[in-house]
């Protein structure tokens, strides 16, 4: 482990529970690098998660950590942030946790533009329960609950969060790690609801069911199907077919929820 990042880990809790070849660890490293770059005070930072593989990340991280119920991380985090706006609040969630059972909390967090940084690990499947399809599984994908291929269409979760009112929305992946670190860093800098979809891999369930090869092959696939927003702007529709666009997809300066509430408190107390 890089010496300057070691202080962010509860090293006594390692090794982690993730399967060999899982890309979640890569994304966690980008998260702590972004935290390091942003210079967040560990004592004043809370990392909140729901249930699932990615939601186990906070247990390994040396901060105030809150592992909640399935899908509810953003709702708990809203309580933490509004009760004490001085705390930096980061939410770690997955595609099942964040877009399915927690989908309502996600869109309402975005709508409020409350100052949370939400990092969603998208591995296209429910890993912890053993490989069921999620709202982010591609059409046709095989999973234990879609043995004949998934007939549901996946969310474009970044579009959904943008439409819901978030001030910062980005997408990265576990291959282009310096880009991902930078996207998370910008999310931490933004005063408002920041959402970063990080495309992960699940070689054991998603990869095996869909014959995607070895873990390294799945990472190389990300290199192929992910293109930056800047590159995409120069490409034709045909060239963009089947590609996933990464980078900062949306940014808007919007009033932040806890600051707006504080104005009400100040006004009431002046009366």
């Amino acid at each position: 482990m890089l010496a300057h990042l070691e202080k962010y880990f509860r090293t006594e809790r390692l090794p982690h529970i993730w399967c060999p070849g899982c890309a979640n660890g890569i994304i966690v490293k980008s998260l702590v690098e972004a935290i390091d770059k942003a210079g967040l005070d560990q004592d004043k930072t809370v990392i909140v998660s729901g249930i699932g593989c990615s939601s186990r990340a906070p247990g390994y991280l040396n901060f105030n950590t809150l592992h909640t119920t399935h899908g509810r991380a953003i709702a708990f985090a809203t309580g933490v942030k509004l009760a004490n706006p001085e705390l930096n609040v980061i939410v770690v969630t997955g595609d099942g946790d964040g877009t399915s059972i927690g989908g309502n909390h996600l869109i309402h967090g975005a709508r409020r533009n409350i100052d949370l940084t939400v990092l969603l690990f998208n591995n296209s499947i429910y890993g912890m329960t053993g490989g069921q399809y999620s709202p982010m599984s591609p059409q046709g994908a095989k999973a234990t609950t879609s043995p004949y291929g998934n007939i549901e269409r996946p969310f474009d979760i970044c579009n959904l969060v943008t439409a819901s009112g978030a001030s910062y929305v980005a997408r990265g992946n576990s291959y282009h790690t310096s880009q991902l670190t930078n996207l998370i860093y910008q999310g931490l800098q933004n005063k408002g609801f920041s959402f970063i979809e990080a495309i992960s891999t699940c070689p054991v369930y998603f990869g095996r069911k869909n014959k995607l090869g070895r873990p390294a092959d799945m990472l190389k696939m990300q290199k192929e199907f992910c293109i930056s927003k800047e590159a995409a702007e120069k490409m034709s529709a045909e060239e963009k077919a089947g590609k996933v666009i990464t980078g900062v997809l949306h940014y808007a300066e919007l009033p932040e929820y806890t600051e707006q509430y504080q104005k009400i408190v100040d006004k009431c107390q002046r009366r």
Binding site: L66, R72, A75, T78, A83, H108
Partner: peptide
Amino acid sequence: MEDEIASMAAIVGASLTGA
């Protein structure tokens, strides 16, 4: 909050900050 589940979650989260 957006629903009853979220309001229960929010008060537990807030309580952990000392509220």
